[in-house]
């Protein structure tokens, strides 16, 4: 059985992601302290709600040095979800300006749909187009729908980092991948069978 170390900064409710990862076949280690991550061989970084609260949870909880070591030096596979993905950018402009982990050359900016009728936040199921051969999309049909809830998105400098996109009055980054790091803006834990498949794909991913 594959063990997943889940970062728990105390800011987010992890029940749904825990239930979904277990359904996908993972054994979970909930990591409330940075040292709990020490033996991780697969990490999930969740995040919902305000960017500021999430990043403060990581920084003040002392998680940043060990995450940098495990992910950037030891190449441990990691999956970021929603704000968990956004925290991998260099900075976010949500409610101010906050520095992120800086793993991707990207900024987190407000969605500004070209169509004024589109509502913010984007809430609901949207068609998601993955790049050819993306590991998270293995076994999924072309252009599956996933569940999104967000007002901000990741704007990448480098198009090579973008693994999937959706359309919301413009192109929105739906997933990113670089080396051993992968992340989704959508919520696999809320996307029924397709979402569980994404989590299974992460569990078996060998970057």
């Amino acid at each position: 059985m594959i063990t997943v170390h889940l970062v728990d900064t105390g800011v987010n409710n992890l029940l749904s992601i825990c239930n979904a990862l277990e359904m996908a076949g993972a054994r979970l280690e909930i990591c409330r302290h940075p040292e709990d991550l020490r033996n991780a061989d697969r990490i999930v970084l969740p995040g919902v709600g305000a960017y500021r609260d999430c990043i403060h949870g990581l920084v003040h909880g002392g998680f940043v040095p060990i995450l940098n070591e495990l992910v950037l030096s030891n190449n441990i596979p990691i999956l970021g979800i929603c704000v968990g993905m956004q925290m991998m950018a260099r900075r976010s402009y949500e409610g101010g300006e906050y520095e992120g982990l800086g793993w991707f050359d990207a900024d987190v900016v407000k969605i500004q749909p070209s169509d004024p009728h589109l509502r913010i936040p984007q809430i609901g199921w949207n068609t998601t187009t993955f790049r050819e051969g993306e590991p998270l999309a293995q076994g999924l049909p072309a252009d599956p729908d996933f569940y999104y809830v967000h007002s901000y998105y990741l704007r990448c400098d480098n198009p090579n980092d973008i693994a999937a996109t959706c359309q919301y009055g413009g192109i929105i980054t739906a997933s990113i991948r670089k080396n051993n790091i992968v992340a989704t803006q959508f919520h696999p834990e809320k996307s029924q069978d397709f979402g569980l498949r994404v989590l299974e794909n992460f569990l078996s991913w060998q970057p």
Binding site: L118, Q122, G124, W125, N126, T127, T129, D143, D145, Y148, C166, Q167, Y168
Partner: peptide, 9 residues
């Protein structure tokens, strides 16, 4: 029409 946010049921 396919590539857009869906209405919800």
């Amino acid at each position: 029409m396919k590539y857009m946010l869906k209405r919800r049921l």
